[in-house]
Design a protein around this nucleic acid. Sequence first.
DNA 1: TACTGTAACTAACAGCATTAGTCACAAGGA
DNA 2: TCCTTGTGACTAATGCTGTTAGTTACAGTA
Lengths: 198, 198
Amino acid sequence: MGRKAGITLDGVAVVATTIADRDGLEAATLTAVASELGIKTPSLYNHVNGLAGLKRLLAMHGAQLLLDEFKAAVGDRGGAEALRAIADADRDFATRHPGLFESFLPAPRLGEDDELYDAMAQPVYLVAGVLLNMGIPQEEAIHLIRAMWALLHGFLDLEAKGGFGMPVEIDVSFDAAVELMISGIEIAAGNANARAAT
Amino acid sequence: MGRKAGITLDGVAVVATTIADRDGLEAATLTAVASELGIKTPSLYNHVNGLAGLKRLLAMHGAQLLLDEFKAAVGDRGGAEALRAIADADRDFATRHPGLFESFLPAPRLGEDDELYDAMAQPVYLVAGVLLNMGIPQEEAIHLIRAMWALLHGFLDLEAKGGFGMPVEIDVSFDAAVELMISGIEIAAGNANARAAT
DNA sequence: TACTGTAACTAACAGCATTAGTCACAAGGA
DNA sequence: TCCTTGTGACTAATGCTGTTAGTTACAGTA
């Protein structure tokens, strides 16, 4: 006994992600993760600060993955096309990683866990960048980002948890909702640019 | 021992709601509820089918309360005014009953628990009624309801869980998001009515 | 008055997170 | 080469969940 089992923090994250996505976030217990890794539960404390630490690791892992996928989806596009790409990538992510996606919230309060806060803010900053590039002034962009983020989060959460009743034509609904939001944003951008031109 | 303690299902619901709203949904355990009621944990099984039953009771209670508040808020208004009233009532509800609000999702799959499914669908039907009265055809209304519902749910969930970062000007953001959605709905209603007039 | 159902109880157990204390191995320095 | 030290596994034990089984006192009804 006392052998090293070659366990890395990344390995823990991957195993926890697999379990969370397969069996639901609440199934990603210390016991389940340890068992999957072939070690006893208390040994996990050498890698992670209890259950809270495991959840944090999951959120961190998810935030980085989501940012990567956003960047890949956006490429060098901008404007409405970039927003559509982000929306689709977000839904794709939520579909492929339901457990990880769920671990995203609650967000830490600012000053509580700055590193995690920062990681989770990155995808939002990316959206912010798109809006600012469209010519929307910062004071206005805050509200539009929140609206966009709320729509995406709400839609995907409802979809994941069956809150839409019958799962009929949800693809159409998603596209319609995103287009609705994008038109609103484009109108705001148009107004802002018109003001700037005078 | 063996005395009746005069406990009603409604009493259980009220106590559970109080705890959930005060200390968070996860604090509404069988032990906590039983303790607050002055009985032992296993005795709760005479009223409620375990923890799942308690959560169900909470969701049921919340759905009915929300429907009442929606109806009171809407009154005999219609159109955009009704939608604004619903949005504000929803946010008000989420603020006053954070635990209860959280218990709303996950929704049961259709056929799994029809009574709860129906109770949770009522508030949605109310929104549906408003849209149909605005002249929006049913096929289109489905998508708009989902968008509206997703926006509200997402916004309130993010707000409750601190997902917006700094809590600055959230009132403004909420109004802006709701107005954005309502303009989209009004445009759709205008188009539909124009088509109908020809 | 006897009967029956309800709603409380005690006892016991399993699964979870968590803490404390122990021990084997691997690596680095004398 | 040997000794020291730190890492990362372990066992043991605790407390808090929910849950089941079996028991018992009371209230209302036949």
